[in-house]
């Protein structure tokens, strides 16, 4: 009891020391540090980050904690689809069984990894290619003179064309070329993100390029490359980072939609939330809960990412700078 009391007291003192120290470093800290500090005190970021953390942990350890084999039809005899007999939650299967007698909970846990993988890889693809194109385009237009303007025009028209293509159509075409697989879904969703990242970074860079401190750097005689990499780019990344978290949410939803349409993993036995949703749809009137679990999973995860993204946007908002 006494040890408990003293530790809590020590905790408090530590916290106090930490707080004062933080204030000191804040006065000398950069804006990134300040944004991070604001992010930590935001409830939205806490909830979003919490959801994200749980999701990532589940995705990583899912296959090990799954109580049953997600692909084995262990209770096949208990489910009779043509007689409308489904099995709901029970002691052995917390979320019940699906239409083929497989354990729903295990399928959810193992499926999380696929869903996360699709989201992260697709977003990464969109981010890397989009930032390259957008950065090049923005830098060329702002500092490249006449030739730069031409480079920007060509790049942006290509991006506009990509924007004009519906993502589903794009995915179907990519699937036709690459064959139906999870990689197809990743590429399709990633490619759809490219123009968004490119446009966003380009616009942000153009706004920064006309800022007074860039003019001041030019007046100082700073070289162009240093102005782009040292001034414009770091100040333009804020919105792009926020977009990354929001894109993760969209990517998960879009990947689920593509899987739902049957463009994903051809092995239908492999669990993935989008596939699960698609399969459950056929029995929606008889066993609605079968669709609710993967749907809830997708919604909560997407919401978590979106909340975190919103909180980051607020933390990085220049209007909130002291």
């Amino acid at each position: 009891m006494t040890t408990n009391l003293t530790t809590s007291k020590a905790d408090k003192i530590d916290r106090l020391a930490e707080l004062t120290a933080r204030r000191e470093t804040a006065s000398g800290g950069s804006l990134w540090v300040e944004a991070l500090r604001r992010l930590r005190s935001s409830k939205m970021a806490l909830i979003g980050g919490g959801v994200m953390a749980v999701f990532i942990v589940l995705a990583v350890i899912g296959p090990w904690i799954a109580p049953h084999d997600p692909t084995a039809q262990l209770w096949r005899d208990e489910v009779r689809v043509n007689q409308s007999i489904f099995v709901g939650p029970r002691g052995d299967n917390w979320l019940g069984l699906d239409h083929l007698g497989r354990d729903q909970l295990s399928r959810m846990l193992v499926g999380a990894r696929q869903t996360l993988l699709v989201g992260v890889v697709a977003t990464l693809l969109g981010f890397v290619v989009g930032v390259l194109i957008g950065g090049l385009s923005g830098a060329a237009l702002a500092f490249g003179g006449k030739a730069g303007r031409r480079v920007d025009t060509v790049l942006m028209r290509v991006i506009d064309m990509a924007l004009a293509l519906p993502s589903l159509l794009l995915a179907v075409s990519i699937a036709a070329v690459l064959g139906q697989s999870l990689t197809t879904v990743m590429i399709a969703v990633g490619v759809v993100q490219i123009p968004i990242f490119a446009r966003l970074l380009r616009g942000s860079m153009l706004a920064q390029a006309s800022a007074d401190y860039v003019l001041a750097a030019r007046a100082l005689g700073v070289r162009r490359r240093r102005i782009v990499l040292g001034h414009v780019l770091p100040n333009s990344l804020g919105p792009v980072i926020v977009q990354t978290t929001l894109a993760l949410a969209t990517a998960i939803i879009e990947a689920a939609a593509l899987s739902y349409l049957g463009l994903g993993n051809p092995d239908a036995a492999q669990p993935e939330w989008g596939v699960m949703l698609a399969q459950a749809q056929r029995f929606f009137d008889q066993a609605p809960m079968m669709a609710v679990y993967p749907a809830l999973g997708i919604i909560i995860t997407a919401l978590g990412f979106t909340l975190l993204g919103e909180a980051m946007r607020e933390a990085l908002d220049p209007k909130l700078r002291s």
Binding site: L31, D212, Y213, A216, A219, L220, G221, P234, N235, P318
Partner: peptide
């Protein structure tokens, strides 16, 4: 660019003309 060492400029907006991320 090199000639700019001898010609310098002071700007109207003191905050806007300083990069917020530089000390």
């Amino acid at each position: 660019r090199r000639a700019r060492r001898r010609l310098q400029m002071v700007f109207q907006d003191p905050l806007g003309s300083l990069n917020p991320r530089q000390n």
